[in-house]
Write a protein that binds this DNA or RNA. Sequence first.
DNA 1: CCGACATACCTAGTACTACGAGGTATATAT
DNA 2: ATATATACCTCGTAGTACTAGGTATGTCGG
Lengths: 112, 112
Amino acid sequence: MGQTNPPFMSGVPELLLLRLLEQREMYGYELVKAIRLVTSEAIALGEGVVYPVLHSLEAGGALRSKRKKVDGRTRVYYTLSTKGKKRLDRLQIEWQRIQSGVSAALEAPDNA
Amino acid sequence: MGQTNPPFMSGVPELLLLRLLEQREMYGYELVKAIRLVTSEAIALGEGVVYPVLHSLEAGGALRSKRKKVDGRTRVYYTLSTKGKKRLDRLQIEWQRIQSGVSAALEAPDNA
DNA sequence: CCGACATACCTAGTACTACGAGGTATATAT
DNA sequence: ATATATACCTCGTAGTACTAGGTATGTCGG
C-alpha cells in the first residue's frame, strides 16, 4: 500500500519558504522577517518553525545551502533546486485546490 | 504561560463541518458526502476524520446531538450551539487571515 | 566598560491534527 | 447468498507546527 498522504492542508510554511526562495536566495533569519512583511503580519512564523523546515527541505534535496560570513556573523543562504521548484509547483496547486474548496463551502448559500 | 496556540492553519475539517451544520442539522455519514459535494471533490474527508472531529466538537460544547431511527438505521444528527456559532466565526476569520496572507505571498512580484 | 538589544544560528520536547485501516450492524439489490 | 450502500465507531500512526530554550557575535547608550 503505497505512500501515506500528508495531511491535506499542511505545508503552508513550506510553501511560503519555497516561494520566497524562488524569487531570490535568502538566509533563515531574513526569511523569518520576510514572511511577516510579505503577508502584512497575517502570518508570523518563528525561528523554531523556519529553521527545521529549511533543514528538512535541504535534506530532501529541495534546497541547497551555502555559508557566508558577513560582518563576523555567519549566514546560511538557501537557493531553490530543480526539485524544489517542482515541489513548490505541487504545493501551490494543492493549496489552490484546498483554498477554492473552502471558499466554495463558506460561500455556499443557505438553501432553505 | 497562557494557552498554547493551535497550529495556525489547522482546523479546516472543523471549519467545514461547523459551516455545513450552520445551514441545517445533519448526521455524520451525510456530512462526509456533503463535503465532497460542496467542494466539488476538492476536499474529501473520510469517516475517520469526520467522526472524531464531531465528537470532540460535541465534547467542547460546540455541537449538540440527537439520535434518530430511520429505516431501521440509527443516525446521529448534530446541531450548532451558540458556542459552536462563535467558534465558527473565529475559525472563519482565522482562515481569512491565512488565506489572504498566502495569496499575498504567492502573488508577490519577483522584484528583480 | 557593561548591559541591552539585534542579528544569526540551532535543537529538544510537546501537542495536536489528520489520516488510514479496520470493525460492527442493518437494509437493499442481484 | 453475496455484494453494495448506509451508518456508526476507534485505534494507532505520522507528521506538522509550536514553544521554549540555548549559543555566539556585533552595536549602541550610558
